[in-house]
Amino acid sequence: MNILVYLIPAALFLALLGLGAFIWTVKSGQYDDMEGAKWRIFMDDNQDDHIPE
């Protein structure tokens, strides 16, 4: 059962990573426009993609 001493902190650390990622998405405003996001996938212009000419 001594393994728990390592496993539990490891598990908690991974879970905290997930929570941290979620907090980052909230802070960076990714939930501010829930309507727009679903439409943006239909936009053809990929201005940020570097497609070779």
Partner: peptide, 17 residues
């Protein structure tokens, strides 16, 4: 609104663990 979302995330994380 953002604060509520954060609280929800923290509570969800804690509840699951």
């Amino acid at each position: 609104g953002r604060f509520l979302l954060l609280c929800m995330a923290v509570a969800g994380f804690a509840a699951m663990n």
